[in-house]
């Protein structure tokens, strides 16, 4: 079994992994990082989205061995000093979650969206989140939240 070294939410792990082990299963089953859920088996839903070296990926479509030497940030690693990331805060303020199952992925994808477009239009948000499915909210409040999150992030940076 290959041995990998990966940093997840600021903690370094060294782990023997099966070559076929998915990153999302490494996180959930081996590292106890259950904040990142799984919603499908065809890389369609985006629930499992994390940041891999700063860019959003669907962690169900990455092998754990591919993350060797990388830095992974999950929804559990966003808060600093006990306060939520501005994007998490914006999701709360705008009621952009109901059951919350899509939420970790939505938040991570939204943060990544701002990396390339710090002030996205409604259309850019809708297109940018196309790979993340939500069954509860109808997306209206998610769009609002990402807009507010962009303002919050802008204000704090």
């Amino acid at each position: 079994m290959p041995r990998i070294a990966v940093t997840v939410d600021g903690i370094k792990y060294e782990q023997d992994v099966e070559p076929r082990l998915l990153l999302v299963h490494l996180l959930r089953d081996h590292l106890g990082k259950t904040g990142t859920p799984i919603g499908c088996d065809t890389s369609n839903c985006g629930a499992c989205t994390v940041l891999l070296d700063g860019k959003s990926v669907k962690s169900c479509s990455v092998l754990a061995v591919q993350a060797d030497g990388s830095d992974v940030v999950t929804i559990e690693g966003l808060a600093t000093n006990g306060s939520m990331h501005p994007m998490q805060q914006a999701f709360h303020e705008e009621h952009a979650l109901q059951c919350g199952y899509c939420t970790p992925g939505m938040v991570m994808a939204s943060i990544d969206l701002l990396r390339t477009d710090p002030d996205p239009s409604e259309e850019a948000i809708r297109e940018g989140l196309e790979g993340n499915l939500c069954r509860c909210t109808g997306y209206c409040n998610i769009v609002r939240a990402v807009k507010r999150g962009a303002q919050n992030v802008g204000a704090t940076s």
């Binding site: 859920p37 999950t74 303020e93």
Partner: peptide
Amino acid sequence: RRRKEDARLLTGRTQWTDNIQ
């Protein structure tokens, strides 16, 4: 009111059934 439920759901501390070990 903003929801009480949100805090755990937004920070990955949710208790989904599949999380249980």
